[in-house]
Design a protein around this nucleic acid. Structure first.
Lengths: 213, 213
DNA sequence: ACTCGGGGTTACCGCAAGTAACATGCACGT
DNA sequence: ACGTGCATGTTACTTGCGGTAACCCCGAGT
């Protein structure tokens, strides 16, 4: 049958692709984001041109790899964000989910934040798109949730987008720093960040003797 | 005299170094972060090995280059942070200073956030240090200001550090996204971010019909 | 029997990082 | 005046990576 045939071919190609991605995953997790195409091909038991046939170029492979992990992480985050609980609890759950993920698999995290490096772009200098797609996607996702659930008055959608990206950036930078220095427990970090979002910065009193920050 | 001699040599070497850095700056700003050592050497009117004598490797050159810009930006930020005004105004001034800087010279900004890529690190996987040094330095600086001016009770120093890195991350991610999409004016962005820091997220009401975010 | 297409390989190109070995010129001690 | 350093510079090379061209093999369809 024509359809089954076509399906077989498709599944075969897709299975290959998944095998290659898994091999690439192992190598990237072992050797870091600088893993060479040769190394990945060797791990998969084949040679370079096949990788290029499947993914076009290194950027394509890395994008496919990143998409898998990004999708997985975003699913967890959505779950935490949609849990039935009050706002503060959900914010804390989401922060904790993200931090757990980067804590459990720092190599994956590092790879996602440091994507293909795009060799040299033309002098167009695509500033604004250089950031890791993961950050952008998380920002948009969060913006959407905020925008559809909170009543922010006129201009609320735009505000939600700013906040989405801002909060994600806060989470990311704090998490990155925390992962390197481990200055406190994860729970404390989550609490501190939630406190920040809850306006404790504005509410805090000045220290004696000078104008407060 | 021995000292004068040594001084002359030092100043000569340092002047050379500055000339090279300025040439490198021009090339990086023109060709992007992927500029080759050959191109930089050519711009400086010399050849590769001299660059290597001065900076060790590409990472060294890029680090030196980044330090210059980072120092300059941090000076502006410190000025905004230390201005005589109330807390909210200072926060807004600092945000605006940062955003002005990245808006005025996006190439510099992009270069600073996407440093040398450190080829392949040993499997130690130095997670936590991969982030741009600029972000770390800004975070520490802000943490210090917060810690020394705000009365945050017990554990306040740690809280200040978390907030410093978190706020810087927020500023960075929002700025990066804003630079790419330009969804609003700079002033609006500053206002929105300050509102976020002032707890409007926690204070906002739910939209009709469901539990709020 | 034949060709045709998917999956595979070897061998190569171009280019960039980094280095070794060689040249040049200018100040010094003798 | 003369060699001796030493900083400054060059050419020419090695290595390793991304990417590609050309060829190969084998099973299926006619």
């Amino acid at each position: 049958m024509d359809t089954t045939q076509r399906t077989d071919q498709q599944t075969s190609a897709e299975r290959r692709r998944r095998e290659l991605l898994e091999a690439a995953d192992r190598v990237v997790l072992r050797d870091g984001p600088g893993a060479s195409m040769n190394a990945i091909a060797a791990e998969a038991g084949i040679t370079k041109p096949i990788l290029y046939r499947h993914f076009g170029d290194k950027g394509g492979l890395y994008a496919a790899l990143a998409k898998r992990h990004t999708d997985a992480l975003l699913d967890s985050l959505r779950a935490a964000l949609d849990a039935p609980a009050d706002r503060r609890e959900r914010v804390e759950a989401t922060l904790d989910t993200y931090l757990s993920a980067i804590e459990a698999r720092p190599q994956v995290y590092r790879f996602l934040m440091h994507p293909a490096e795009e060799t040299q772009s033309d002098q167009g200098f695509d500033v604004g798109k250089h950031s890791a797609p993961l950050l952008r996607r998380m920002g948009e996702e969060l913006a959407q949730v905020i925008g559809e659930r909170l009543d922010l008055g006129p201009g609320g959608q735009q505000l939600a987008r700013v906040w989405g990206h801002g909060i994600v950036g806060m989470m990311h930078a704090a998490g990155d720093w925390w992962l390197g220095e481990r200055p406190c427990s994860r729970a404390e970090l989550v609490r501190s960040l939630a406190d920040l979002l809850w306006g404790r910065l504005a509410a805090a009193g000045d220290k004696v003797g000078g104008p407060g920050f």
